[in-house]
Design a binder for these strands. Structure first.
Lengths: 340, 340
DNA sequence: CTGTTAGCGCTTTCAG
DNA sequence: CTGAAAGCGCTAACAG
């Protein structure tokens, strides 16, 4: 069963022609005789010839593999995102390496190193929540490995980025709550390292000013995304006087943690206290009390856009066009109302 | 910034020694002078030398990459599984290619082909729900690419498999329901192509016989896992006379679809009709009415076991030991009671 | 149209 | 202990 895989050399020998002719025949090169081409292709078929891609990679200095680094596939946001990346990659004949940082900066660096050593052609990454040093990523340019950031992107201008328009989404969410009559609105924000946290705060201030409501920064707290941390900061929010009647949470997972805790505190969800969040998990449709609304962030779209940018860069490398210009793409998303 | 990466040759030239000596120095080869070793290592450091892995892969005929093919990362079962795989792979210095079949047989084959061409060292796969022809997978042995199946495995003996002990788990679940007083128990099974479907049916019969209950095969129906299909078969079950009082569903997603539909039909969940399922999604803890119980299937464990098996095979290839023996590992899991 | 040659970067005999 | 040389499979520049 297990027979040796044929090489170009073998075919050449059997046909008494040179390897280069075989190569040409196999590639439909213009300058090759029809007759030899036929003979080669026939024998190749017969011997089950398949090019040794590694040899080709080696020669072309290209692996047709890209690396994707993200915090956690358990979150539907990221599993959707990687689907977008994968679909675009496959269409362009690239394969996809995966690495989960689990929000651990060390692990993130380790993954980047491993991918660099594997000589991936490019990397798409959504940063670990506490990553604030980007040297290991920027250093990849030394190896001609382009990087595209998505979703959790660094606050840098000269990099390729695809991310959600947090300011817009946050404004929409807050205005929705205000329309519903809420005046004291709490915000459960993410870690400071995340660019989006600052944007959310900015949007909060902006909306409050525009609506002539009081800005109370004690109503803006930061969770590290863990359930415990979320409970702690929710306690803070709930002890504010007067207590906020609505809370905007950084994502559905945090919202669910917060809601569960609030329920335990005997608060009636979406009555005593309303929740709105980001992400719009499909699973929310199974909940008795989902967040009142979620800001859709289009993970699949973000993923596929990021992949397209990377593909473009990789294409341009061959034609070595000008480029060096960086893409900075913002994705907008609508507010999805779940209840009321 | 972007400087050429140094090669062994370069180092050799600069030091006026031969490339082979450099190679030896870099590998702590026994027969190399301490002095030259030092000089080489120093210069290597200085020039930021990093071995070109592709060249090494090419030479060693090994890529240190494995491929993982699974239906869908959106399901927590699979994202947990891949975490297990990834952790083991990283520990062994392998990188992981990912491919989602989205339960499409065509796509599955396409992914396999792409990975084969990338010359992965091995493949771990959980089959698409309707895959019933395994030729494309078995053919991989022609290329010396070992395959380890997990979770959704083929009903073959001479392959490496890691899978859940469906018979045991099903018995536990059914006996739990019987203890609770249920006598008419419906089963929402998966597609026939899945080995587990047959096992679930077998376990059902076995338990019914042991408990001296009537076996009514009209209470065992098959969904194709889509929500629509689940609704159709639930209708079937509910129209049985007498109506079943409990239902065992193939997994939590199907259970949730079924429960949602049942609720729409004005049935009281876990009262008029009880649900028990497999998988034990963490998200169930956020539900008002989770399934009454779930059979834990230990996806992380299955993934890591599968990866360990693959790593063992890959190790043995070097030492070319005997092996050729196939691993067939069953994972057991306990019943998790969610309510009551 | 076809063959020869060289070389990608590295390892590994085989001689010295 | 060190160097020379060959070769992994493929491509491409150059000659015929």
């Amino acid at each position: 069963m297990k027979n040796k895989v044929a090489t170009i050399k073998e075919i050449a020998k059997q046909l008494n022609i040179s390897p280069s002719s075989v190569s040409r025949a196999l590639h439909d090169h213009p300058s090759i005789g029809l007759r030899t081409k036929m003979r080669v292709q026939e024998l190749a078929q017969q011997l089950n010839y398949e090019p040794n891609k590694i040899a080709i990679f080696f020669k072309q200095r290209k692996t047709f593999a890209i690396g994707v680094v993200l915090p956690n596939l358990k979150e539907e946001f990221f599993s959707n995102a990687i689907s977008g990346i994968e679909d675009v990659a496959i269409k362009n004949k690239y394969n996809v390496f995966i690495g989960q940082s689990h929000d651990d900066v060390e692990r993130e660096m380790q993954i980047i190193t491993a991918m660099k050593e594997q000589r991936v052609d490019g990397i798409i990454i959504s940063l670990a929540k506490h990553t604030k040093n980007y040297d290991h990523l920027l250093a990849l340019s030394r190896y001609d490995i382009p990087v595209v950031f998505f979703d959790r992107v660094p606050p840098l201008k000269n990099v390729n980025r695809v991310y959600y328009n947090m300011v817009e989404g946050t404004k929409q969410a807050l205005e929705f709550l205000i329309t519903k009559g809420h005046r004291r609105i709490g915000v459960i924000n993410g870690p400071d390292e995340m660019k989006s946290s600052k944007e959310r705060t900015d949007a909060y201030k902006e909306v409050m000013i525009k609506q002539r409501l009081k800005i109370d920064m004690s109503l803006v707290v930061s969770t590290d995304l863990s359930a415990e941390s979320t409970r702690v900061v929710l306690d803070e929010l709930l002890s504010a006087k007067p207590r906020p009647t609505a809370i905007l949470a950084i994502n559905d997972y945090v919202a669910l943690d917060a809601m569960q805790y609030a329920k335990k505190l005997k608060l009636k969800i979406n009555k005593d206290i309303c929740f709105v969040s980001y992400a719009n998990l499909p699973i929310t449709s199974f909940l008795l009390n989902p967040p009142m609304a979620s800001v859709e962030q289009h993970p699949y779209l973000q993923g596929s856009k990021a992949a397209e940018i990377l593909m473009d860069i990789l294409d341009d490398q061959n034609d070595d066009k000008d480029k060096d210009s960086c893409k900075d793409i913002m994705v907008s998303g609508e507010l999805i109302i779940h209840s009321r």
